[in-house]
Amino acid sequence: MSQTISLTNGQIFFLMIQTQVGFGILTLPNTLQSTSKGDGWMSVLLAGAVIQLFLVMIWLLMRRFPRFIYSEITTFLLGKTVGTFINTIMYLYFILAATFILLQFASIIKEHLLLSTPFWVIGLLMMLTCTYLAISDIRIIARFFALISVLILFKFGISFFSFLLPVDLHHILPLGSSGVKQIALGGKDCLLTVLGFELILFLYPLASKKGTTFLKVITWANVFVTGLTAYFVILCIMIFSQPALEEIKYPVIYFLRPLQFQMIDRLDLLFLSIWIVPLGISIVTYIYMGSKILPFFRGKSYKLVLMNSTLIFVLFTIAKKDLDSQKLYSSFVEYLSYAVVFAIPCILLLISYLFKKSGKEVSC
C-alpha cells in the first residue's frame, strides 16, 4: 500500500475505540445482573482478555497476508466458491449488526429525547447521516473519528458529577462472591457489548506501520475500551442497588438523572446526546465494511454503500413493528457474530498454518 492511502497509528487507534464504544455499554450493568451481579466489572476484564487473545489471532492471520484485503484471504485459502460464500455470510452479518444498532438507537432516542417523533423518521435521519460519512474515503472517516474522540473526555467529565450522589462500595464486595461460573457467563455478555474490533480485518493492509507496531496500537485500543467499560459498570453498581439495576434498562443514563444544577438541568439528556455520536459511528463502520467484503463490487463501493443503507433501513422498518421479532433478531445477530467475528478468522489462521499458505511478509 502506498503512503498516500495509509492510516497512521493514531487514526487506527481512534477507529478501534470509536467502533467498539457503542450502545451496549448503556445497558451492560443491567444485563450483568442476571449473571455476575456485583462482580460485573470482573466479567468486563475477562471479556477484555478474551478479546485481546482474538486480536492477536487476527493479527497473526493478517500478518501472513499483509497486502491482502480480507475478502481476498478467504478466497485464497478456501477457494473461490467457499470463500465467496463466507464473504456473503460476513456481509449479511454486517448488515444485520448495523440494523440492530439502528433499532436500539431509535428506541432509546424515542424513549428519552424525541418522544413525539415517528420511529421511522429517527431511523431515516440517522441513516442519511451515516451514509454521507460511509460513502467517503477511509482516511476521511478516520480523521472524523479522531476529531470527535474528544467527546470521550466530555463523557468522563460528566460522569464525575455522579460522585455527588451517595455511592456504596459494599455493592461490589466481597470480591468474587458471584463465583467463577457466573463471572464467566457475564464475560460472554460483555463480548457482544464491545464488538467492532473485527474492523482490524480491513485496516491492516492500510496501516502505515504493520507488524508488532500495529499489534501494540490495537492492544492499547482494547485496553482503553475495556477500562472505559469497567469504569461505567463499577460506577453503576456502586450507585444503584442490585434490585434497582435489575429494573433499570439504561443505568448508565439514569445515574445522572437526580443531579440538578442552577444553570444545567437533566444532565442525563446531555450525556445521552453526546453518546449518540459513537452509536452512529458503529453504523458507519459496519456499512463501510459491508461495502468492502464483496469482491464483485470492487471499484464501485459507493454504490454498495447506498445499497447497504437502503437494505438496513428496510430491515429496520420491518423489525420495529413487533417487540418479539426484535428479540429474535437480536438473538440471531448474537449467534451469527460468534461465527463471523470469532470462528471464521481462527479457522482461516489454522488453515494458513496447516497448508503453509501466506503472502509476502512486510517488516515493521
Rank of each mutant, 00 (worst) to 15 (best):
I69P: 02
P243S: 05
A184L: 07
Y132W: 13
K155M: 12
L350N: 03
V223P: 02
L28T: 12
I140H: 06
F316D: 03
L336I: 07
S358N: 10
L350W: 11
S325I: 11
L185R: 10
Y353E: 09
A134M: 11
L45M: 11
V217Y: 12
K37I: 13
V21S: 07
Y231C: 11
Y132F: 14
P118L: 02
L45R: 06
V21K: 01
M57D: 04
E247A: 08
F316H: 04
L349R: 06
T27W: 00
K216L: 11
K327D: 15
D265T: 14
V284P: 10
I351P: 06
G280I: 01
L151N: 11
E111N: 13
I283S: 05
D168L: 00
L192C: 08
F271G: 10
K37W: 10
T84N: 07
L169I: 11
Q262E: 09
M42Q: 14
Y254V: 04
V180C: 00
I17D: 03
D322T: 05
L199T: 08
L175C: 05
L114K: 10
S116D: 10
L203K: 06
F154H: 15
S330T: 10
L151P: 12
L175W: 13
S352G: 10
L96G: 12
L349C: 03
V180Q: 01
A184C: 04
G38F: 05
K292R: 10
I287R: 02
S107Q: 11
I122Q: 06
L115G: 11
K209L: 04
D137K: 09
P258K: 05
F144A: 12
S273Q: 07
F332P: 03
F156S: 07
I135V: 12
R139N: 13
L173A: 15
I140T: 13
E198F: 09
V150M: 08
L191D: 14
L267N: 01
